[in-house]
């Protein structure tokens, strides 16, 4: 059974694009268009192998989402990748402090994305 990757982004284009790239690489994909929707799916029982989130989203930004996910039982060690247009060092430090696993700057080359995901999920 393929590993499930949960993508959180408020851009429908990004969701479609990443879903296609990761599905072709053999992963199962679940999606959410906001931090709130993501929390609702996770609280509803979704248990992905990896979460990929954007930073700049509506009411709940990516950093807040990571902080909320990290305090959920069973989610302390699930890898979380930030994929964003933001490349500022201070924002990276914020993500690192919130216990993100890694940081990718958009636009992400499909090969880079798949390589990083496979690096994080060697058995995925």
């Amino acid at each position: 059974m393929p590993a499930t990757i949960f993508i959180v982004d408020d851009s429908a284009t990004i969701l479609m694009s990443m879903e296609a790239i990761l599905t072709k690489a053999g992963f199962a994909v679940s999606k959410a268009a906001s931090g709130e929707e993501a929390m609702s799916k996770l609280q509803g029982g979704l248990k992905p192998s990896l979460i990929i989130t954007d930073i700049h989203m509506g009411a709940m930004n990516g950093i807040e989402l990571i902080k909320k996910v990290r305090v959920m039982p069973g989610f302390q060690f699930i890898p979380i990748l930030v994929v964003t247009t933001e490349s500022q060092q201070s924002k990276r430090d914020e993500a690192r402090a919130a216990k993100a696993t890694g940081w990718l700057v958009k636009p992400v080359q499909p090969d880079d994305l798949v390589r990083v995901v496979k690096q994080i999920l060697p058995n995925g």
């Binding site: 479609m16 296609a20 958009k106 636009p107 499909p110 994305l113």
Partner: peptide, 20 residues
């Protein structure tokens, strides 16, 4: 080339954030 094209579609999100 399809995967590469999917990757290029991220331009829309970059543009969206610049306009925001």
């Amino acid at each position: 080339p399809i995967v590469g094209m999917f990757g290029k579609l991220q331009f829309q999100d970059v543009t969206r954030q610049q306009l925001a």
